[in-house]
């Protein structure tokens, strides 16, 4: 177990290095931030000073080495635009995004899993077909369109919930959160639903196919032969068996939601990491973009490790020592 975790941590370091290399050079290729940072009437001398101050006079590979050197000391660079450390900027926005992502996953699982199991237990019924057909909309309609429709219907037309912003926040252990105020909830709910829908559909379909397969297994028939009640068969025998794929998907989606939340955050003007990323890309604020990608990768890698550890708990046949990555 310890050996497994250690090996995974070492692998993760290499993943992070590779990602940093790619993103650093990619951002360099997008354009010259100096053009955006200085006003057109600045003198050439002032321009030179600024370029040197930002370290942009060095060749790209030297810039990268400087970046790596700072990285080793825990410094991911300073925002060109805001003049504060990029990490600080991102971590300020992290709670808003995490709040959104966690709530959307809770929605996806708490609705998708039961609906999927209902559909999987009796696949031939009309209810099951309705659920499965409905789930197609969940992942085939584009997220930004779903977001706009949610705003149109619930914010503009019905006026049930606000369309933008984060609402009132309260401080919880030094972190500003929305989900503890009524106003915060009303702001949170639409973007969370928007972010949840594709995953709800995904969890639903996974649960449905898993349940449809599991219910025909001999162990279910055997449990029935023991006189186990249907409710218990579903909750213990079937649910436990379909949890492994569901947990995998939730883990992987947790990482990608943090990335995909950019769209939702933009549509709903939610002040999270994703919104910051989009703003930073527009402003060619290289350190923030690079730091964002690094942090997102780090979260991704960490969650994947946690998912692997969760496997071993859910499926006793999984042996972590033998599985490589």
């Amino acid at each position: 177990m310890t050996l497994f975790i250690l090996r995974r941590v070492i692998q993760s370091v290499f993943v992070l290095l590779a990602v940093s290399l790619v993103v650093f050079f990619a951002v360099y290729a997008i354009g010259d931030p100096v053009e955006l940072l200085v006003s057109p009437d600045t003198s050439a001398a002032e321009r030179e000073v600024m370029i040197r101050r930002l370290g942009l006079d060095l060749p790209i590979w030297r810039q990268y080495l400087v970046f790596l050197g700072n990285l080793a000391q825990g410094d991911l660079g300073t925002s060109f635009v805001h003049g504060v450390p990029a990490v600080e900027l991102i971590l300020q926005r992290l709670p808003a995004t995490l709040e959104l992502v966690v709530l959307s996953l809770v929605i996806a699982v708490s609705i998708g899993l039961p609906l999927g199991m209902i559909a999987g237990l009796a696949p031939e019924t009309r209810t099951a077909r309705t659920i499965m057909t409905g789930s197609i909309f969940g992942y085939s309609l584009p997220a930004f369109w779903q977001g706009m429709m949610l705003i149109f219907v619930f914010a503009v037309f019905l006026n049930w919930a606000p369309a933008a912003g984060r609402g009132d926040t309260v401080s919880l252990l030094g972190v500003e959160v929305s989900f503890l105020t009524a106003d915060g909830w009303s702001h949170l709910i639409l973007p969370a639903i928007n972010l949840a829908l594709p995953n709800l559909a995904l969890v639903l379909r996974l649960a449905a196919s898993g349940t449809a397969e599991a219910r025909l297994q001999d162990y279910v028939k055997y449990a029935r032969a023991k006189g186990v009640r249907r409710g218990r068969i579903v909750r213990r025998h079937i649910l436990r068996n379909i949890l492994v794929p569901v947990v995998t998907v939730i883990g992987v989606e947790f990482g990608s939601l943090i990335a995909y939340s950019t769209i939702t955050e933009t549509v709903f003007a939610w002040p999270g990491m994703g919104k910051l990323l989009i703003d930073s890309v527009y402003q060619l604020d290289r350190p923030v973009v690079v730091a964002y990608v690094m942090i997102a990768t780090f979260i991704f890698v960490t969650v994947n490790l946690l998912v692997d550890l969760a496997y071993a708990m859910l499926d006793p046949r999984v042996e972590l020592e033998k599985g490589a990555s």
Partner: peptide, 18 residues
């Protein structure tokens, strides 16, 4: 016939408690 993700104990005990 035995459920791979439940302990033998749980699978035997449920046959009694049910």
């Amino acid at each position: 016939t035995l459920n791979p993700v439940l302990t033998i104990g749980e699978q035997m005990i449920e046959a009694v408690t049910e």
